[in-house]
Structure formats: C-alpha cells, structure tokens
Amino acid sequence: MTKRPRLSMALLAMVVLPNFLCVCNAIESPQYSVVHSESDFEIRLYRETSWMSAPVKDISFEKATRNGFHRLFQYIQGANLNFSRIAMTAPVLTSIVPGAGPLHSSAYFVRFYLPTKFQTTPPTPLPELSLEPYTWEGHYVAVRKFSGFARDTNIVQEAEKLATSLSRSPWANSTSEESSYAYSIAQYSSPFRIIGRVNEVWVDVNPSGLGGYKYSEIATS
C-alpha cells in the first residue's frame, strides 16, 4: 500500500496560517476612542466592557499567561454551565500586580474579552476552572505598541519605555492611583504567528491630572 506523503510543519503553516490569520484579523475587540496620540504612544478611552478573568499566582509572566489562557480556552470551548462555545476575541490581556505573593512572585489576571453576544450574560464557567467574570468600567489607558513575542525578558523594558514617554508628555502626572495593576500586556496575535506580531503595554491613566490641558478626540476604532 502506498503511503501518502506527509506535509512538513513549514508547508503546513504556509497552507493553514494565512486563513487562520484572516480570521484573527476579523475577530471582535473592545471599542475605544483615541483622545491623544504621539509617535510612540497613545491615550485611549475604552467603554465599559465585560471580561472573563483567570487569576494566577506565579513568578513568570509567560507561565502565568499560558496557565490562565489554557483555562479560558477550555471555557470558550464549552466548559461552562451552558455548554456554550464562544468565539475567540482579541486581545488576550494579562494584568500584573507586582509583589503580591511570596518569593517576589506576582499576581496575574489573564483576561478574555467577551463577544457582544455574551457581554450582558456571560455563561457561568465550570467551578474547577477557577474563573471569574470581570466588569471593566469605562477608563483611559496609555498604550505603547511593540512587536515580537511578549516575554519575561522584554515586558518590563516596554513598560518602562511607556513610563518614560508619559513623563515627557502632558499626561506625566496622570497615572491612575485607583488602578491595582502596575500595567497590563495585551497580545493580539496567534501563538503560531512568527512575523508581524502585535502586542501592547497598557497603563491606566486619569485625565483629572491634566490640569488645564485640553485634549480632543482625534480617531475612533
């Protein structure tokens, strides 16, 4: 009996990934308005949104993100009391609370943005997944984009670059004291995508710290 030739992993990626990435580009994301823009960062105003959140305690951002997303992926594949399958959205957001655990470990919250269909009534996750619904009230976020993979080795540097940019802008004294997170990392790309990956650092900001500075909405997403 003649054996069928096997596709190499590289050839399989060439065949499958373009279609997969087209789907990724069309998936839902939370809506926002851009209220301030500079060459290396922008300020966005996000509407109130509902997410499903996976709390994780770990020293590693990468391990925490994998752990949290694994549980969230089970949830959207039907591991909920409704047995509902939920469409993938972007970004996958990992919020970091530094120094929250022993041995300098951190607390992380890996979050999945719920599609419009489930914004008001998210399916209840199975208890063993240890997930919890999270409502993110309307808020302002300073955002810096960066490429490549988000790693333990580069996320702190990217957050520091955003902090430096903010310190030189009218938003210098606007970091939100109400936020319990140092910063969040938003990842938009499939883990199988190598080139053209999109990530962002998010930091909550408060426009009340602007004093007399007047900003205007310049774009809407």
Rank of each mutant, 00 (worst) to 15 (best):
R193D: 06
Y46D: 01
E132A: 12
R168K: 11
W136A: 15
N154E: 06
S106E: 05
K117I: 09
Y32S: 09
T89R: 01
R4T: 08
K117N: 08
S8F: 13
A87Y: 14
R66P: 05
A26L: 12
R47S: 05
Q77E: 13
L11H: 09
A107W: 06
M88H: 11
R168G: 08
E38T: 15
D204T: 08
S84H: 06
S33P: 06
P91M: 05
F83W: 14
S165W: 05
A26W: 10
Q187N: 12
R71L: 10
A26Q: 08
P91W: 00
P122V: 00
M52L: 11
R6D: 07
R151Q: 14
S29C: 09
E38H: 09
V16Y: 14
L7T: 08
E217K: 14
S50R: 09
K161W: 14
V23A: 13
E38P: 07
T124W: 09
H139T: 14
P125G: 02
L21A: 06
R4L: 14
L12C: 13
G68I: 03
S130Y: 01
G68A: 02
F109T: 07
M52Y: 04
Y46N: 04
R193W: 00
E38M: 15
K57M: 15
S29G: 12
S179P: 04
Y108K: 02
G68R: 01
M9W: 05
I96P: 00
W51P: 06
Y134L: 15
V198R: 11
L103I: 11
A13C: 10
N154P: 01
A186L: 08
P91C: 09
I218P: 00
W171R: 10
V23I: 11
T89E: 01
L166A: 05
E200R: 01
I96H: 07
I27H: 04
L45R: 13
V110Y: 03
S147Y: 13
E132D: 07
A159V: 01
R47E: 07
A142T: 05
T65A: 13
T220F: 12
L7W: 06
Q74P: 03
D152H: 03
S29D: 09
I27L: 11
Q187L: 11
V203W: 03
V201D: 01
I194E: 09
Y134R: 14
L93H: 00
